[in-house]
Every structure is written in structure tokens, then in C-alpha cells.
Design a protein around this nucleic acid. Structure first.
Lengths: 349, 349
DNA sequence: GGCGGGAATGACAGCGGTGCCATCATCCCG
DNA sequence: CGGGATGATGGCACCGCTGTCATTCCCGCC
């Protein structure tokens, strides 16, 4: 434990092992052309000194930062966290570090900010999640800087960059079918925040399922929410105040579904007997509320891992600048979780 | 938009502005001793070239990385996310970047991992959250590396490093008093994961409140949970199966409270008439469940911001190596949120 | 025996900034 | 008017590592 208090550098290692710094560098980077004998001596020296290569110096010299950025917009909920966990898993496994940056996509200086993040830190690659995943300014900056990026749940797949998503439309379709199969015909729908990717796809799935079953989409049963609890309380009230009220409500996410459930409880409804409710996302909430919520599970963590894998895959074959063509667009499988918030409509026992 | 495709360096700026690179450096770093005229010329050149200083080079030369790390253990829930949002807020405001790293504190090579994170990335400072906040190995590594760190919600305050927390014991005390005031005498308690900081403090507060009110702590009413929903379901069953069952249950966090509520619903109880339930943490869940949960709100985000402020405060006066003595230990105010999951015990209307 | 070629190693010039010191012009004051 | 303090600027080594190229040695082959 005694010794110079300065952190050991590659030079110290080289001296101790009786090698040149270049050879030490080779060992550190697992390059070829090092004799077993030399390799062993250097590894021993590294261990003895507790040498840790300085990332900054490495990055500066090699033009690689080993940094992957996660750019996101709203700091929203469990989703973002799951994404990070997924990214972190892969980063760790491949020796990358994760840098998280929030971008206020409403702010006028998105451009500056995005540019600063990407250029100052010299990120090797970036993963984008909603709503930044669709922000044209951010995408442009990334393109200009030549930084590879992967988009999670983009509104629209581009030829310039890979993406990862589930088939939200299909999921909403299936979930609606489930309600139809139970016998529901008047199915309310609470949309998410306008212009959000998910909002459109989920609503489309709902409409298509109804239409395919020969049930007309009744505009009276469709409410505009914001993906928040508060917004959905109002929607639920309007839906349940109607004289000929729906027997089931499809909320575009779990949080809004929770609001519907609360409002129903408030009115003394017994769930799911009086009203069926379904959500979307399978947040932890879904399992913990009463009754447990029927919903759709996105494999969020896995999506993040996939995104990271795609990104790291490219980074590992550097020299190549461009994505293989066509760029990969992964669609992962979702799961419909039938829990206890859905039942036959009243009078159809 | 035309020009060399290479990213501009400080040299390019210097040349364009007709100054030395050193002077440009001064402007970039807002140092003194630059004439207004010169300053303006350089700023113009920076703008024209779209120059962004290279963090790597900066860090290498200055021994400052402008990186703050957040080390955490379990990737658990909304808590971690709130912490990150708080940290991110401050980091952004002060020009730092956030690097998040999970440490598997059960793994045998915690030491290696912690050391790698701290030393390779040359983090300027670190914020620790539970359970890493109390990990002696991690703390030692940080000490040895001379990296300043702030602990959030530590088990025990140390003289070597600042900390931020709320008074959990007091909060649990007050919450228990609330139940006592409503008339409850048989109050069940579900503890959190053993050895966790919070577990002990919350339980202590509960015990003291009972004792001070002249109510004996009945071991039959105390269950050992794990902070998880699943663990608490079992606890709730045992508590409610008792012949002389509790009229109120204090769960050590919201997730476990949700489990109690679910189990009660399962048995056809009407809440809060038949059973009062309280939780701890005020996760989003608390507001969204039915009935809305009476709980304690930790200002998590604010705690993170405070931690960041303390850290950045020190970092800004570098040159100084040590914390001021005594090191700051902030105790932030908590809030008791009385919602609708508590009421007078049955028969005491 | 000469030679081409791969394996193993090292020398050295940067990467893009910052820290330290030198230089020079001013200015104030006794 | 000399001398010290202060403002403004530049020169240059160096932070710790990697890329490129040179060098040496050994081997197989014609």
C-alpha cells in the first residue's frame, strides 16, 4: 500500500515490467503480437500497481469515448428507468459507460443543447427514446456529427437509423378484441397525449378491432387524455356520466386506467362486474392496484437492451462509418396480460 | 455550412480570431484578464466555427472531468429515477454531466467495480444512494481515491462525508400517532428488508409512538417484509388471519401497503371502514390506488438536488481538498399526507 | 546463402486542451 | 522619475494514452 500517492500511469507499468509503454498499451487493449512471457510480466505489473487506464487520455488519443448517451425528453416514470436499466446492462457487459441527458424538447435551444451533449462529450453512440426519438432537430444534429444512434419506439422508421419497438397497433387491436369477446359493445377509449407516437397507434388498433367486429366507432366514447392520472379523471367522469355509458373502458396507459378505476370506485361501482377497464404498459402499478389491471406488457428493458446491442454491434466494427443496409428495425413481442379488471358486461353473465 | 469536415479545435479559433490558443482558452473558461475587444473577437470566431471544446482534452489537461457519478444498488423503482432527475437538474445547471453506474453490492468484486468506475472515469464527485450509501468497501475506495462524495439517506452519519436525509424515525412516529389519534390500538406493522437503513428507523418510530401512548408493542402484530409487494401479501395474510386482528396496518413502504390493500379487498373488506392502512414514500402508486393511501412523502428530488448542490459547492472551490468541518448533514422536511386509507376503527364511529 | 514475410517490440509524434511562467504595456505613488 | 502593482497576452511543456512507422529477430523456402 506504500508508494507514490500519484495514480500509476502506463509509464509506471512499463518501467516496472521492463517494457515499452506501447507494449503495455497492447496488453491493455488485448492487441496481437505480444509474447506470452511479456504479457504475463505486464499483467503482473498492472496488478501490482493497481493500474487503471485513464479513460480521458485514452479517448483523447483514440477518438473513442466509450460513452453511450441516452437522450430522453420527459423524465417520465418507470419507463425511462427500465430503459436505463436495460442500457446499463449492456453497457457494462461491453465496457461502455452510460451518460444520461435530458433534453427539454420544447425549449428553443434544443439545438444548442443537443449539439453540446453530442460534440463536447464526443459520445460514441446514442439511444433515443420518446419524444426525442422523433425530434427532427436532434436527429439532424446527430447525423451531422456522424454519431450513430438507435431510436426506441419511433413514430416512423427511417432508412438512416435502426429502431426498436413493439407493434402497438396490434397490441391495442388484440386487447380490444379481448373486450369484444367478453361481450362488450360499448367500449370507451381514452387517448394519450396528442401527437405522441403511441397515442395514434393505440387508437388505430382500437378502431380497427371495432370495425373488424362490425361495431361502429362512436366518437362519444372517445376522450382525449394526456397520459396522466389527472387528465384521465376528467375523461372518466365524462364517460361515466353519459346516460348510455360504456361497459368497458380502454385507457391508453396504466396511469390513466388507474384514474378510471378510482373514479369508478368513487361512484360505488364494483369492478370488474360493473365496468371493465384495461390499460397499456404494465407498469408496476398495474399489478398493485385493485383489481389487478388487464394490460399490455412492453418488454421495455429488453427493448433497451436490443437497442444497445445494435448500437454496440456497429461501434465494434469501427472503420465502417455507415449502417449496414437496410438498417435493422426490430419489432419485439408484446404480451397481453389478462388480470382481474375485465369481465363480461353487466347483464350478460 | 461549408468548410473542413474536421471538428474545429481551439487552434482554429485562435487562428481565426488572431489570438493565441491560451487566450482563447481564457475566454472559454471565463477567466480574467481578457480585454473586451479580444473577448468579442474570440466569441465571434467561436460562434462562426461552431467550436465546442473537447471535454476529453480538457479533462486530461486539467484533471477535472466535470463528471458526477451516481452509484446505486438495486435499480429500484421510482425512487432511483427521482434521484436522477434531481441530480440531472443540478448537473445541467452547473455544467456537469451525470454518469450513472449500478453496483451489484452482493457481488464479490464490488471492490474492482467501484474502483474501476471511480478511477477510470476520473469522476469529480459521487452521490451515493441506498444501499450503496452504506457499503464500507465503496466508501473506502472513494476515500482512497480522494473523490468527494455525498451520501443520501445513510444509515449513520459519518464525519468524513456529508449526507442528506429526512428524519424517518420522526415521520414514522407521527404517522403512528395519527393512527393512535383515530382510536386504533391494535396496529400491525410490516417491516422492510432486514438491515436496510429505513427498516430500522421506521420501526423505531412506530415503537416509540406506541410506547409513548402507553400501548405495548405486540410482537404478534409485527411482520418481517422485504419492501416488495409479494413479501407483503404473505405478511398481510398472517396479520389478517389472526383471531384478534389489527384494525390498522402500517406498511414500511407504499408497495407493501398496496399489497395489504389488495389482500383486504380480496377478503371483501371495505376500506378504510374495516381496516386502515398507511404506507411510506408517497410513490406515484399511493395516489393512484384505491383508496388513495395515507403515507409519508420524502422530498426525494429535492434531496438529490441538495446532495448535488453540496457536492458541486465543494468542487467549485477546488484547491481545497477536504470538506469543511464539520461536514454538512442536511435533514430535509418530510410531509405526512393524509388521504383516504385511514379512518376510525370499526365500532368507534 | 539470400531473401521475403510475419511476429514482437519500441520510438515518437500527436490528440486538444490547461497550468505555469515570461513578457510587455500601463498606471499609480512617493 | 524609478519601481512595484496590475492588466493583458503569448510560449511552451505536459496531461496519459494511441496510431504509425521503424526496427529487429526468426523462420521457411527456393
Amino acid at each position: 500500500m506504500a508508494g507514490p500517492d500519484r495514480k500509476p500511469t502506463i509509464i509506471d507499468v512499463a518501467r516496472l515490467a521492463g517494457a515499452s509503454i506501447k507494449t503495455v498499451s497492447r496488453v491493455i487493449n488485448k492487441e496481437r503480437y505480444v509474447s506470452p512471457d511479456m504479457q504475463e510480466r505486464i499483467e503482473k505489473a498492472v496488478a501490482e500497481l493497481g493500474y487503471q487506464p485513464n479513460m480521458m487520455a485514452r479517448s483523447l488519443a483514440s477518438e473513442r469515448s466509450n460513452l453511450i448517451g441516452h437522450l430522453y425528453g420527459d423524465a417520465g416514470g418507470p419507463y425511462t428507468l427500465e430503459i436505463q436499466v436495460g442500457l446499463l446492462n449492456r453497457c457494462r457487459a461491453h465496457g461502455y459507460h452510460l451518460m444520461i441527458e435530458e433534453i427539454d424538447y420544447r425549449s428553443p435551444n434544443v439545438e444548442q443543447r443537443a449539439s453540446a451533449i453530442v460534440n463536447q462529450m464526443r459520445l460514441d453512440g446514442v439511444v433515443l427514446t420518446a419524444p426525442v426519438t422523433d425530434n427532427p432537430i436532434v436527429l439532424r444534429i446527430l447525423e451531422e456529427a456522424g454519431v450513430p444512434y438507435v431510436r426506441v419506439t419511433p413514430q416512423q422508421e427511417l432508412e438512416t437509423s435502426p429502431s426498436v419497438r413493439i407493434d402497438e397497433r396490434q397490441a391495442a387491436y388484440t386487447l380490444t378484441q379481448h373486450l369484444l369477446a367478453l361481450g362488450h359493445r360499448r367500449i370507451g377509449f381514452i387517448k394519450g397525449k396528442a401527437n405522441h407516437t403511441a397515442t395514434i397507434l393505440r387508437y388505430t388498433g382500437y378502431c380497427e378491432a371495432l370495425t373488424d367486429a362490425g361495431v361502429a366507432v362512436d366518437p362519444v366514447l372517445v376522450e382525449q387524455g394526456e397520459f396522466t392520472y389527472a387528465s384521465a379523471v376528467a375523461c372518466a367522469r365524462r364517460l361515466l356520466d353519459q346516460p348510455h355509458r360504456p361497459t368497458a373502458i380502454f385507457a391508453s396507459n396504466d396511469e390513466m386506467a388507474a384514474a378510471v378505476v378510482a373514479e369508478a370506485h368513487n361512484r360505488g361501482f364494483s369492478l370488474p362486474a360493473n365496468l371493465s377497464v384495461v390499460g397499456f404498459d404494465d407498469t408496476p402499478l398495474a399489478e398493485m392496484m385493485w383489481p389487478p389491471l388487464t394490460t399490455v406488457r412492453q418488454p421495455v428493458r429488453e427493448m433497451a437492451e436490443t437497442a444497445a446491442d445494435i448500437l454496440i454491434g456497429l461501434l465494434s466494427q469501427r472503420g465502417k462509418v455507415d449502417w449496414p443496409k437496410p438498417v435493422p428495425h426490430q419489432v419485439l413481442a408484446h404480451t397481453i396480460l389478462l388480470r382481474q379488471s375485465t369481465a363480461r358486461p353487466p347483464g350478460k353473465a
